[in-house]
C-alpha cells in the first residue's frame, strides 16, 4: 500500500490530518492534508527536498494539543520525533508515522547510519554508510592546525541563524545565541569559535544527524562534522545515541550518577 493510500485510509477516522507534501510548480512543499484535500498529496518524496518535519509536528501539537496526525517521516524525522518526545516537546501517542526509507544517493551519501524509520511504508531499506571520515581526519590533525581550520570556516559565517532555525531539536524559547551577554549583537562574523561551539555543545546528546543544518548553511560550513564529533563523545561515554529508542534515558535527563531530573 502506498503512502497516499495509507494516508487516505487513516483519514477515515484514525487521524485528523496527514503531514506530507504537495506538488506546487514542480516543488514538493510540506502540507497538512485533511480528508477533503488528500487527492492533492504528492506520490513521490525527492531526496533533495527534505524539510524539518518534526518541528512542524511540534508546532501543530502546540497549537492544537488534541490534534491527531499522521506524518510522512524518514529515519531522521523519526529520530527527531523520538528525541523531542523524550524531552516533552511532542506527544508521540497522537502521531502515526508513515515511514519513508531513503534510497539511492541519499541513503548512500547522506552519511546517516540508519536512513530508514522503524516501520517502512514506502521505499526499500538500505543500510547507511556512516561517514566519520572528516571527524577522524580532524582527530589526526595537530591541535593548532585543527583550530586554524575551524577558525577559517567559522570566519565565513554570515550569522543567518539558519543552522539553529532549521534544527528540529532547537526549540528553546530563549536561545543562548540571541543572548547579548554571550553573543555580541551586530557582529559578523560572530565571535570565533564561541558562537559555533555554543551550538555544538547544545547538540551533544541531542543531534540526530539529519543534516538539515549543513544543507541550510549558505556558507558551506561543515557543521555535521562538528556535531558528529560531540555526538561521538556522548556515545563513547554514555552509550547514548539521540533518537535511537524511546526507552533509553538521555544523559541530559540525569544529574550526577543517580539523581533524575524532574
Amino acid at each position: 500500500m502506498s503512502i497516499k493510500e495509507k494516508a487516505r485510509e487513516l483519514l477515515e477516522g484514525e487521524v485528523d490530518g496527514v503531514l506530507g507534501c504537495r506538488l506546487v510548480g514542480g516543488s514538493h512543499l510540506p502540507h497538512l492534508f485533511t480528508a477533503a484535500g488528500i487527492e492533492d498529496m504528492a506520490e513521490d518524496y525527492p531526496e533533495g527536498e527534505r524539510y524539518p518535519i518534526a518541528s512542524i509536528v511540534r508546532r501543530l501539537q502546540t497549537e492544537d494539543p488534541g490534534v491527531r496526525i499522521a506524518v510522512v517521516a524518514r529515519g531522521c524525522d523519526e529520530r527527531s520525533l523520538i528525541e523531542l518526545s523524550k524531552q516533552g516537546q511532542v506527544d508521540l501517542g497522537r502521531v502515526v508515522i508513515l515511514g519513508l526509507a531513503c534510497e539511492g544517493d541519499l541513503a548512500r551519501e547522506c552519511g546517516c547510519a540508519e536512513p530508514y524509520p522503524s516501520e517502512i511504508v514506502d521505499g526499500q531499506r538500505v543500510e547507511g554508510v556512516p561517514d566519520y571520515s572528516l571527524v577522524e581526519k580532524m582527530d589526526r590533525m595537530p591541535a593548532d592546525a585543527r583550530l586554524d581550520f575551524w577558525l577559517s570556516r567559522f570566519g565565513s559565517c554570515i550569522k543567518c541563524y539558519g543552522c539553529r532555525n532549521v534544527c528540529p531539536l532547537c526549540y528553546c524559547k530563549e536561545c543562548a545565541l540571541e543572548d547579548a551577554e554571550m553573543v555580541e549583537r551586530g557582529r559578523v562574523p560572530p565571535a570565533r569559535p564561541a558562537f559555533h561551539l555554543i551550538r555544538a555543545l547544545d547538540m551533544a546528546g541531542r543531534c540526530v544527524d539529519c543534516g538539515l543544518c549543513e544543507e541550510a548553511c549558505p556558507m558551506g560550513i561543515p557543521l555535521r562534522t562538528l556535531y558528529r564529533k560531540v555526538g561521538r563523545v556522548v556515545e563513547d561515554n554514555f552509550d547514548y545515541r539521540p533518537g535511537r529508542s524511546l526507552e533509553e534515558k538521555s544523559p541530559l535527563a540525569v544529574l550526577g550518577t543517580e539523581k533524575d531530573l524532574e
Binding site: 510540506p30 527536498e49 544543507e215
Partner: peptide
C-alpha cells in the same frame, strides 16, 4: 501558514537561486 496566520519561513529546497538557504533577513 498555520491557523490562518503567517507563522514562519523556510528556505525553499532546490530553488535555482538559493537552493535551500536564506540569510537572516529572509529567515
Amino acid at each position: 501558514v498555520s491557523g490562518g496566520r503567517l507563522a514562519g519561513v523556510l528556505p525553499q529546497k532546490g530553488h535555482p537561486v538559493s537552493d535551500g538557504t536564506l540569510c537572516i533577513k529572509g529567515w
